[in-house]
C-alpha cells in the first residue's frame, strides 16, 4: 500500500496555507504516483491547533503548520518572533529564518519528537481598534485580544493597554459589540475573518510577525524510505516557496480590499509616530533576554542589516 501523509490544518483551502497544502499534494502525487498519497484536511476538520501536534506525536497526523506561537510549549524560544518591532521587513525575516539561528530553532524541536521542515509566511501584524491609534498613548486602557503568549501580554502592557484572551470564534462578536476594543492581526486574517467590518481603524504598524512552521513527527519523517524522503522534502520546499509567494501577494491584495470596502480606515504613521511606538514597546525585548537568549535576539536584530 502507498504511504499515507495526512496534512491537517485549521484554515480554509483558499488561504495561502491551504493553497500550499494543496500544492504539496499535487507535487507529491505527481512525482511519487502510487507510492505516496497525501490527504489534506482543512478547517480544523480533524484537529484544532492545540491537539494536532499531540496527534502527530501519536503517529496519526503526518504534517501540520501551526502558528509559531502555538509551539511555545515545545520550545519557548520561538516566542522571539512575537517580540515587537524586531524585524524591519519580510527580507529580514527570511534572512533570520534561513540563517543558522532560524535553522537551529527548527532543529531544537527534535528533543520533543518533532521535525521542523520550514517556515511559512503569513505576514506582518497590524493594530486595529474602535478608535484611531496614532501614538502609544491612544492604546492606554484599551482591551486588546491576544493569542496566548507572554511576550504579547508584555507588549500591550508596555503601552498601558489590557490584553484579553478569548477564543477565535468569539472575537468577532466581542469586537462588534465593543466588549473588546481592538486586536492585532495580519491584513489577510483581518480580511478573511471580517474583523475590518467591525474595527473602524487599522493602524499600519507592521509591529510583529505572524508566521507558521511546517512540522512532521521525527518518527514518521525518519521512517520514510531513502528513495522517497528527498522527493517529499523537495516537494515540500517548493510548496513552501509557492505558499510564501501567495501569502505576500494576498497580504497586499487583502489590504487593498479592506481599503476599498471603506468600512475601515487605515491609519498611516509618520516616522516620528512610529518611533514612539518602537520606544514604548522595545523594553519588552530586555524582559525576555534571559528566557529567549541574548544571542538569539541579537541574531534577529542583525538580520535587519542584510548580511
Amino acid at each position: 500500500a502507498p504511504i499515507e501523509i495526512k496534512f491537517s490544518h485549521v484554515v480554509a483551502e483558499n488561504t495561502p496555507k491551504g493553497k500550499m497544502a494543496t500544492k504539496f499534494k499535487e507535487l507529491v502525487e505527481q512525482r511519487l504516483s502510487g507510492k505516496v498519497v497525501v490527504k489534506v484536511f482543512p478547517n480544523a476538520q480533524l484537529f484544532g491547533d492545540d491537539k494536532v501536534l499531540e496527534a502527530m506525536l501519536l503517529g496519526d497526523v503526518q504534517l501540520a503548520a501551526p502558528a509559531l506561537s502555538k509551539i511555545k510549549k515545545y520550545n519557548k524560544q520561538v516566542q522571539v518572533f512575537d517580540l515587537p518591532f524586531l524585524f524591519d521587513d519580510m527580507a529580514a525575516i527570511d534572512r533570520f529564518q534561513q540563517g543558522p539561528e532560524g535553522k537551529k530553532l527548527l532543529k531544537s524541536l527534535e528533543k520533543r519528537g518533532l521535525v521542523g521542515l520550514g517556515y511559512l509566511h503569513n505576514g506582518f501584524k497590524q493594530l486595529s481598534a474602535s478608535s484611531p491609534l496614532k501614538v502609544p498613548g491612544d492604546a492606554k486602557g484599551k482591551k486588546f485580544r491576544i493569542m496566548a503568549s507572554d511576550v504579547l501580554v508584555e507588549q500591550f502592557r508596555a503601552v498601558s493597554a489590557n490584553p484579553v484572551k478569548k477564543p477565535f470564534a468569539e472575537v468577532f462578536t466581542l469586537l462588534q459589540t465593543k466588549a473588546i476594543d481592538g486586536q492585532e492581526n495580519t491584513w489577510s486574517n483581518m480580511y478573511s475573518k471580517k474583523f475590518y467590518e467591525v474595527q473602524p481603524y487599522i493602524t499600519e504598524s507592521n509591529h510583529g510577525v505572524l508566521d507558521y512552521v511546517v512540522l512532521s513527527s521525527k518518527e514518521f519523517w525518519l521512517s520514510l524510505p531513502a528513495d522517497i524522503r528527498p522527493t517529499v522534502e523537495k516537494a515540500l520546499q517548493e510548496a513552501i516557496v509557492y505558499g510564501n509567494q501567495v501569502a505576500l501577494a494576498k497580504d497586499q491584495e487583502d489590504k487593498q480590499a479592506i481599503i476599498a470596502s471603506k468600512r475601515s480606515q487605515v491609519v498611516t504613521l509618520t516616522p516620528e509616530e512610529r518611533q514612539q511606538w518602537v520606544d514604548a514597546m522595545k523594553p519588552v525585548w530586555k524582559k525576555f533576554e534571559v528566557e529567549l537568549g541574548k544571542d538569539l535576539i541579537q541574531a534577529a536584530i542583525s538580520a535587519n542589516q542584510g548580511k
Partner: peptide, 8 residues
C-alpha cells in the same frame, strides 16, 4: 477593564 489571561 482587566483581562484574566488564564481563565479561558
Amino acid at each position: 477593564n482587566q483581562g484574566l489571561i488564564w481563565a479561558e
